[in-house]
Amino acid sequence: MKTIAKLITVVIVGLFTFSSLAAAELDNDQPKKYMLLFRSENIDHYKLTPEQIQESIKQWQTWIGGIAAQGKLVSTHQIGSEAAVLLPNDKVEKKPYEALNQIVGGYMILKASSMKEAMEFAKECPVFQIGGNVEIRDIMEVPENN
């Protein structure tokens, strides 16, 4: 019994994010897509206890699940710590791009009828709890060639 519980926990932890193709096929009356960029201070996860990490995962998952339950999620991913910024003249900075002490830690693409609705979704984002912010941008669709 314990092993199963453990395995299931592993399944959950291993699955922080997922993209959803099925949801993307849903309702066509919401043609607009928005991208949410999550920014926060570069806090390394090792400073958190396993319980805190678990709790954080749960919060994010429940927020994402709420959007997915409305069929509005297109895709979302957490961004890892391996990073490189290529600069002109073959220069490379091997760390995430940092501005105002903040880096991008993840993104989400969702469907919303307007910027206002997209903002409503973003309001509950757990990133605010660690002093982060969410940038919302509309996604330009390539016009179809007929």
């Binding site: 994010t17 959803s20 949801a23 849903l26 998952q61 994402i64 699940g65 997915a68 339950a69 069929g71």
Partner: peptide, 9 residues
């Protein structure tokens, strides 16, 4: 369920 919905609504 949170994860399931992300795979398939």
């Amino acid at each position: 369920y949170n994860q399931l919905l992300q795979i398939e609504y």
